[in-house]
Simulated assay, not measured.
Amino acid sequence: MPIHQAPFTVTTRGRGPVEITHHVNEHLRQSGLETGLCHVFCCHTSASLTITENADPTVLRDLEGHLVRTIPDGDPRYAHDMEGPDDMSAHIRSVLTGTGLTVPFARGRLSLGTWQGIFLWEHRTHGHGRRVIVTCQGEAPASPSMPSESRGVEADAGELRQVLTTLTAERDQALAELHRATAALAELQGRIQASEDTRTELQAIMARLRDIGGG
Rank of each mutant, 00 (worst) to 15 (best):
residue 2 P to Y: 01
residue 3 I to H: 03
residue 4 H to G: 01
residue 6 A to C: 10
residue 7 P to E: 14
residue 8 F to D: 05
residue 8 F to P: 10
residue 10 V to A: 09
residue 10 V to D: 12
residue 15 R to Y: 09
residue 23 H to W: 01
residue 23 H to I: 01
residue 26 E to V: 03
residue 26 E to S: 12
residue 27 H to D: 11
residue 31 S to C: 07
residue 31 S to A: 12
residue 31 S to W: 04
residue 35 T to C: 00
residue 36 G to W: 02
residue 37 L to G: 08
residue 40 V to G: 06
residue 43 C to K: 14
residue 43 C to Y: 07
residue 48 S to Q: 07
residue 52 T to V: 11
residue 52 T to A: 04
residue 57 P to W: 12
residue 58 T to M: 14
residue 58 T to D: 14
residue 60 L to Q: 08
residue 60 L to R: 06
residue 62 D to L: 02
residue 62 D to S: 04
residue 62 D to Q: 03
residue 66 H to G: 11
residue 68 V to K: 07
residue 69 R to L: 12
residue 70 T to W: 14
residue 71 I to R: 15
residue 73 D to G: 11
residue 74 G to A: 14
residue 74 G to E: 15
residue 76 P to M: 14
residue 78 Y to F: 15
residue 78 Y to Q: 05
residue 79 A to L: 15
residue 80 H to E: 05
residue 81 D to V: 13
residue 81 D to G: 03
residue 83 E to R: 13
residue 84 G to P: 15
residue 85 P to Y: 12
residue 85 P to N: 15
residue 86 D to W: 11
residue 86 D to G: 12
residue 88 M to I: 10
residue 89 S to I: 09
residue 92 I to T: 14
residue 94 S to P: 13
residue 94 S to A: 15
residue 95 V to G: 15
residue 98 G to T: 06
residue 99 T to P: 14
residue 100 G to V: 09
residue 104 P to G: 09
residue 104 P to C: 04
residue 106 A to L: 06
residue 113 G to K: 02
residue 114 T to I: 07
residue 114 T to N: 09
residue 115 W to L: 06
residue 123 H to D: 00
residue 123 H to N: 05
residue 128 H to G: 00
residue 128 H to P: 00
residue 128 H to K: 04
residue 131 R to V: 03
residue 131 R to N: 08
residue 141 P to F: 08
residue 143 S to P: 08
residue 143 S to V: 10
residue 145 S to L: 15
residue 147 P to I: 05
residue 147 P to R: 15
residue 150 S to F: 12
residue 155 A to L: 12
residue 157 A to F: 06
residue 158 G to Q: 08
residue 158 G to P: 02
residue 161 R to V: 00
residue 162 Q to F: 04
residue 162 Q to R: 09
residue 163 V to L: 00
residue 166 T to F: 07
residue 166 T to D: 04
residue 167 L to A: 05
residue 169 A to C: 05
residue 169 A to V: 14
residue 174 A to M: 00
residue 174 A to R: 02
residue 174 A to P: 00
residue 175 L to E: 12
residue 176 A to M: 08
residue 177 E to S: 07
residue 178 L to K: 13
residue 178 L to Y: 11
residue 180 R to N: 07
residue 183 A to E: 12
residue 185 L to Y: 15
residue 187 E to P: 01
residue 188 L to D: 05
residue 190 G to A: 00
residue 190 G to M: 00
residue 190 G to N: 00
residue 191 R to F: 01
residue 191 R to K: 02
residue 192 I to Y: 02
residue 194 A to M: 03
residue 196 E to Y: 05
residue 199 R to Q: 10
residue 199 R to Y: 11
residue 202 L to Q: 14
residue 203 Q to V: 14
residue 205 I to K: 15
residue 206 M to R: 09
residue 206 M to P: 04
residue 206 M to E: 10
residue 206 M to V: 07
residue 212 I to L: 09
residue 213 G to W: 03
residue 214 G to W: 01
